[in-house]
């Protein structure tokens, strides 16, 4: 991960992380607030001082955060949220200045060029080069993803529940390859463009995949000391085994 940690010091006591949770009441239908809890807890465990900014629905989004989290939401919430985010501009400014973004499910669709909600074609924020459309049928169930080798994380486990699929443009890479489930709908899962990450993995994704949480934190904080991850690792392996059988890992 050397290229991602250039110019960063390893975290020391007194280091700060500004973690911004975008419209959690609107974009948190599937337990996605868990991603914020996990990031905050794992940074604090490394002695980092964490400030969690929960942006109330339609309030201004600060552009000076280090790490932003967008969750999933129902169609109406998604449409309201994307209109407000476009008008506000804070999230796009943060992304342009190099903040790390994690968007889940409806969050991914909102970051792209366009998506479909409530039967209508809705303009997205254009932060990532991707477009989302309706899939023939809703994808519901366990999702297993082999992440891009550059991420240095083991098999990702999550639960997907979405009606939209996502097509990447040339600027966006996938997060990984689908091993089981639907993901983007064409064999890949999620998007990655610079420091912006999108995924259809719920669970929440960072609760099940500690290494992915540390990957995101590492982009901001540099090399991280290991934590005792017996419990999250037990959960990840258990879910993988449930889907893939005993050879999972």
């Amino acid at each position: 991960m050397a290229e991602q940690t250039v110019g960063r010091l390893d975290p020391r006591p007194g280091d700060r992380l500004r973690l911004v949770s975008v419209y959690p009441e609107l974009l948190g239908t599937y337990g996605d607030r868990g991603n914020v809890l996990v990031l905050a807890a794992r940074a604090r465990a490394r002695g980092v001082e964490v400030e969690v900014v929960e942006v109330a629905p339609l309030a201004p989004v600060p552009s000076q955060g280090d790490l932003y989290v967008l969750g999933g939401g129902e169609d109406a919430a998604q449409s309201s949220a994307v209109a407000a985010l476009a008008e506000d501009g804070g999230l796009a400014a943060a992304a342009a200045s190099g903040a790390v973004l994690l968007a889940v499910c409806a969050g991914v669709q909102m970051l792209g060029e366009r998506f479909v909600a409530g039967g209508a074609d809705v303009p997205g924020l254009g932060i990532i080069d991707a477009t989302s459309t309706r899939m023939p049928r809703r994808a519901v169930g366990e999702l297993v993803v082999e992440a891009d080798p550059g991420l240095h994380v083991p098999l990702l486990s999550g639960y997907e529940n979405h009606g939209g699929g996502t097509t990447r443009g040339p600027l966006a890479e996938p997060l990984g390859r689908v091993v089981r489930g639907a993901g983007n709908g064409e064999g890949t899962e999620g998007v990655r463009q610079g420091r912006v990450y999108g995924t259809y993995l719920h669970g929440p994704v960072l609760a099940r995949n500690a290494a992915f949480a540390d990957h995101l934190l590492g982009l901001v904080l540099g090399t991280l000391a290991p934590l005792d991850d017996t419990l999250p690792e037990r959960l990840r392996r258990e879910r993988l085994t449930a889907v893939l059988g005993s050879a999972a890992g």
Binding site: Y30, G31, D32, G34, L37, V140, G141, Y159, G203, P204
Partner: peptide, 9 residues
């Protein structure tokens, strides 16, 4: 329900 992600809510 097959998805216990509500635990985080």
């Amino acid at each position: 329900g097959r998805d216990p992600s509500w635990l985080w809510d």
